[in-house]
């Protein structure tokens, strides 16, 4: 009995040490802001990037479509961790030895760039599926009313695409939140990086628990918000027909 009690006490002391937790969480708040910054910008850029890629794929120019297809496939296949390392260390080393100093990126821009490149490829697939799931008759009806391709896309197809892509984009956002932790490898002062630093200082892994609490605390509400968005966008979306 005593041995088990001791084990629980050790677990608590190392992983759920209230004192360290209380001490760590305020220290991690700046790191949380860094996560927000990376997330907000990566989400914005990869949304626009993915949408652009998906639309370019509809242009009837084979080389262009092939190029976009190759981009999407390549960056879906490449580990984000490797890409981040490439951008930060690879380009940084290249930039400092060749004198092309603009290639030397700070960790946060490097993280945003890497995440944007990868998630643009993911979003492109989501948007492509979304656009192609809008029935062809919608485009035809819009065209028959005198709309050109651009207007039909903007006013008829894309609004319907947006509500279709909300659920998969939600999953993507959740994955992206977790992938920001990869940026710790390139010394980005985000949650995981900072909590590891503090863990070293305290010689206690409780700061990791603090980071975990913060991740979950802001991921869960986001999941809720996304679900509400999904319901709102679902308005009137019942299938048209018989």
């Amino acid at each position: 009995m005593d041995a088990i009690g001791q084990a629980f006490a050790d677990l608590e002391r190392y992983f759920f040490n209230i004192e360290i937790l209380r001490d760590t969480i305020p220290q991690l708040l700046p790191a949380l802001l860094v996560v927000f910054e990376i997330l907000f910008l990566s989400l914005l850029f990869s949304f626009l990037g993915g949408l652009t890629l998906a639309l370019v794929r509809l242009v009837p120019l084979r080389p262009l479509r092939w190029l976009v297809g190759a981009y999407v496939d390549f960056f879906r296949a490449l580990p984000l961790l490797l890409l981040l390392t490439y951008i930060y260390y690879g380009l940084g080393l290249f930039g400092s030895t060749t004198g092309l100093r603009f290639l030397i990126l700070d960790p946060i821009p490097a993280a945003i760039l890497g995440i944007t490149i990868t998630y643009s490829a993911y979003s492109a697939e989501i948007f492509r599926a979304g656009i192609s799931s809008v029935p062809h008759g919608q485009m035809e009806a819009a065209r028959s009313l005198g709309m050109n391709n651009y207007k039909a896309m903007l006013h008829v197809v894309l609004p319907q695409t947006m509500r279709i892509v909300v659920p998969p984009l939600t999953n993507e956002l959740i994955a992206m939140i977790k992938d920001t932790a990869l940026a710790s490898v390139i010394t980005t002062p985000e949650l995981l990086f900072r909590s590891r630093e503090i863990m070293g200082l305290k010689a206690n892994p409780t700061p990791l628990t603090a980071a975990a609490i913060l991740y979950v605390a802001f991921t869960l509400p986001l999941i809720r918000v996304a679900a509400r968005l999904e319901r709102r966008y679902g308005k009137g979306a019942r299938p048209v027909g018989m």
């Binding site: 029935p135 919608q138 035809e140 009806a141 819009a142 028959s144 008829v156 319907q160 299938p239 048209v240």
Partner: peptide, 13 residues
């Protein structure tokens, strides 16, 4: 030239 389709094709949104 107005056109009406068998499947209506109204804009559901």
């Amino acid at each position: 030239v107005g056109m009406v389709f068998q499947q209506f094709n109204l804009f559901p949104h």
